[in-house]
C-alpha cells in the first residue's frame, strides 16, 4: 500500500507540472499580462517596460515558470495586480466554493445513488423509464440554463429563495446553487449506479445471499450496493475537480463570491497571478481527489490489493 501511494504520488508530478505549465503558457504567452494593469487604455511603452521588469516578465517564459513554482512551494502565490496577496483572495474564496462543492456532492450521493438503486432494481418498469428520461433531460439542459430557470422560478416568481447569495454564503443559501451545480453530475451518478446495480443484480453472490435467506434490505445494502459502487465512486472522485472548476457558471448566476467568481474576474481583467494561482490549486485538488478514489477502492472491494 505504502509503495503504491508513493508510486502514484510520483506519477502525479509530471501531470501537475504539465497542467500548470499549460495554463501558465496560455495566460502568459497568449495573453498580455501587462494589459490588465492599465485598465482599458493601452499602456505607454515606458510604463510597460518598467512593469515588465518589476514583475520579472522580461525574463524567458520557462524562467518565469520556474520562479513561480518555486514561490508556490514556499506558500507564496504572488500578489494580484491590485496589491492583494493571492493567498488572501484564496482564503476568502475557497471556503465558499468548498461549501458549495460539499452540498453538490451530498446531493450527488444521496439523490443520485438512491435513484440509481431504485431504478436499477426495477429495470424496465415505469419508474425506471421515467427517471431515465428525467436524467436525459437534465443532462441535455446546460447548467447555466438550469441555473437561470431555477433563479427565475424560485427566486423571482415564487420568492422561495433570494435570487443572489449574500457575501456570507452560508450553507442554507447555497442549497439551490449546489443543486444546480450538481444537476448534470447527479444525472450521471443515477445512470451509472443504475447500470452497475442492474449488472450485478444477476451475479452469483447476490443469488447466494438471497438463497441463504438474508433479508432483501441486507442483500441490497451489504452485497449489491458495495460491489456496485466502484464506478460511481470513481466518477464522484473525478467530479470534485470538475465541480470546483465548473462553479464558474453557477457562481456567476447566483453572484457567489467563490473560486469561480475570482477566476472569472481574474481572467477578464487579465490578472495573471490570480488565475495561475487558483488553477494550480484546482489541479492539485483534482489530482489528490483521484488518488483518494484509488485508495478507496481497496476499502470498498477487498479483492483489490495494492502492493
Amino acid at each position: 500500500m505504502g509503495r503504491y501511494v508513493i508510486r502514484r504520488l510520483l506519477q502525479m508530478i509530471p501531470v501537475f507540472i504539465g497542467a500548470t505549465l499549460l495554463i501558465f503558457l496560455m495566460v502568459n504567452v497568449m495573453g498580455d499580462p501587462i494589459a490588465g494593469l492599465c485598465g482599458d487604455r493601452q499602456c505607454d511603452p515606458a510604463t510597460a517596460a518598467q512593469l515588465e521588469k518589476e514583475f520579472g516578465l522580461d525574463k524567458p517564459v520557462w524562467q518565469q515558470y520556474l520562479t513561480y513554482m518555486g514561490n508556490v512551494f514556499t506558500g507564496d502565490f504572488g500578489t494580484a495586480f491590485n496589491g492583494q496577496p493571492v493567498t488572501e483572495l484564496m482564503a476568502t474564496a475557497f471556503p465558499v466554493t468548498i461549501r458549495l462543492t460539499i452540498i453538490a456532492i451530498v446531493f450527488e450521493i444521496v439523490i443520485g445513488i438512491t435513484l440509481g438503486v431504485v431504478t436499477g432494481l426495477r429495470r424496465g418498469r415505469p419508474v425506471d423509464s421515467g427517471v431515465l428520461l428525467v436524467t436525459l433531460v437534465v443532462i441535455s439542459v446546460p447548467t447555466f440554463v438550469t441555473g437561470l430557470l431555477l433563479q427565475l422560478l424560485l427566486g423571482v416568481k415564487w420568492g422561495w429563495i433570494k435570487p443572489s447569495v449574500s457575501s456570507d454564503a452560508t450553507f442554507g443559501e447555497l442549497i439551490v446553487p449546489g443543486l444546480v451545480l450538481a444537476s448534470v453530475s447527479l444525472a450521471y451518478v443515477t445512470r451509472l449506479t443504475r447500470t452497475s446495480i442492474a449488472e450485478n443484480k444477476r451475479s452469483d453472490y447476490v443469488r447466494t445471499a438471497i438463497a441463504k435467506g438474508l433479508p432483501r434490505r441486507r442483500v441490497v445494502t451489504r452485497h449489491l450496493l458495495r460491489n456496485s459502487l466502484i464506478p460511481v465512486v470513481t466518477f464522484i472522485g473525478t467530479d470534485i475537480g470538475a465541480l470546483m472548476g465548473g462553479a464558474i457558471v453557477t457562481e456567476r448566476i447566483f453572484n457567489i463570491h467563490g473560486v469561480g467568481f475570482q477566476l472569472y474576474q481574474g481572467i477578464l481583467r487579465q490578472n495573471t497571478q490570480t488565475v495561475v494561482g487558483f488553477v494550480t490549486v484546482l489541479v492539485l485538488v483534482f489530482l489528490v481527489a483521484n488518488l483518494l478514489v484509488d485508495l478507496l477502492y481497496a476499502v470498498l472491494d477487498p479483492r483489490i490489493r495494492y502492493a
Partner: peptide, 10 residues
C-alpha cells in the same frame, strides 16, 4: 486535469 470551462475561459 484541466477543467474544460476553465481552460476555455483562459
Amino acid at each position: 486535469a484541466i477543467p474544460v470551462v476553465l481552460g476555455g475561459l483562459v
